[in-house]
Every structure is written in C-alpha cells, then in structure tokens.
Amino acid sequence: MTGRPARVPRVFPLVLGVLVLGVVLASALPGVAATAAPSPAPGTGTAAPPRPGQTQFQRGESLYQSSCASCHGQAGQGSQRGPTLIGVGAASVDFWVGTGRMPLAEERVDAQRRAPAFDEQDIDALVTYVTSFGGDGPAIPTVHPGDLTLGREIYLQNCAACHSAGGSGYTQVGGQVAPSLLEATPVQVAEAIRIGPGQMPQWPEEVLDQGQVDAVVTYVQELQRLPNRGGLDLGRIGPVTETVVGFAGVALLLVVIRRLGKRAP
C-alpha cells in the first residue's frame, strides 16, 4: 500500500454529524418551520368589502353565498361536496373558519390549519348567518382559567393518545394527522372538544363539564408556553429524534478519535 487511502471516510462522519445536527436543530425549532411555510392565499375566501349600513346578518349572508354555498348549499342543506351546516352550531362555524380550515384551499379530506380567510367581524357575521339555519349545535364556549393538575390528568387520558403528550400532534389511520395544539387558541381548543371536528371524538357537556374543559384548555396553554427545561425539545416526539441526536453524538466522537489517532499506512 502506498500513500494515504482516500479521504472520504475521514470527512464522512463529520459531514454526517453536522448534517444530522443541522436537521435536529431545524426540527427542534418548530417556529422556524411554521413561519417558513407560506400560508397559501385562500382561494375562495375573497369577498367584497362590507358595504356601509350592512347588518351583521346581511354581511354573513353575502360572505356565505360567495364562499361557502357552493359546497354546503344555498341554505346550508349540504351537497355532494360538503356536509350540511344545519344544526352544527356556532362553535363549529367559529372553529372551522377561525382556524382557517374553511373555506378549503383545495378539496381534500383533511383540512389544514391556515391563517383565517376572514377577519374577526366577518367570522362573527358568518356564525350569525349559519346558526340562523336552525338546530341546537354547541354555542361558542367561553373559557376561564382552570385547574392545571386536573387539566394535565384529563389531557393525558383523553387527548395525548392522538395529539401526543407534548401537544405536537400525531399520525392517524390513512395518513391523516391529529394536528399540533401548539398554535391553537384557548377558545379553539374548547370548541374542538365540544364539536369533535373531523375524526376527533366529541366531548359534550355530559361527558366533560365546563370545569374540566377549562382545565384541559389551561393545560394546553401551559404546553404552549412550557419553557424548554433541559434544553432543545426535539419536537417532543421522544426516542425517534433522540436516536438521531445520539447517533450524531457517536459520529462526533468518531471525528474526535479520528483526529486523536493516526491512520495505518
């Protein structure tokens, strides 16, 4: 053997370590990913500006007819493209529109959280109009500060299996996702508990009372602002990302010994 062998193996662990650490750091900063993802301009969410003198009901009607009626029907009776809205209740309308999931950017099974297409007043107007279709669906819940410990207990029993213990969401059957709760507002969390959007089960008053919902909402808020005690949280998904970091650590130590030791001729 003459000369040094190729240098590939020497830099390989370093490159690997740096790459992996980079990926980890990127994934450990959910804020980066969230802000980097452009929120697509809602396709059907454009409506004419409110005319002066228009009542809230009229405003709601005009927004509904321009943005919702094509799928949910002129009078909320539903169509092949969308379910009926009669009796869904104020909480449901506020949740779907307020989280930007409706109007759909494109027709797909699971709507994604986006920046809402309407401002607060317009959403209120839509709620007023859609609830006028009748029915007794849940009203927009009010939330109060609740018992944090009780909230943690209820959350871990009922919510963690789908939304993950850290609130970052989890996969479901068929590639759908129980979304992350880390961007949800308190009212949206309470609304989701009451209406059970999509595949999510619903917890009406007889299953979870107001105090219990308040407690869960309080705990979700705590999850949102928990300081990362003990460092980067690696997405709060447990051993998968820990494995990646652990392997990066081993790669780093291999670089160290590569520097320490010499190479056989």
Binding site: A160, A161, V173, Q199, M200, P201, Q202
Partner: peptide, 9 residues
C-alpha cells in the same frame, strides 16, 4: 391501550 378513536370511520 388502544387510545385513538376515529369517530367518523
């Protein structure tokens, strides 16, 4: 524990 219930399916 089979904790995830999909209410529509």
């Amino acid at each position: 524990p089979v904790g995830l219930y999909e209410q529509t399916t």
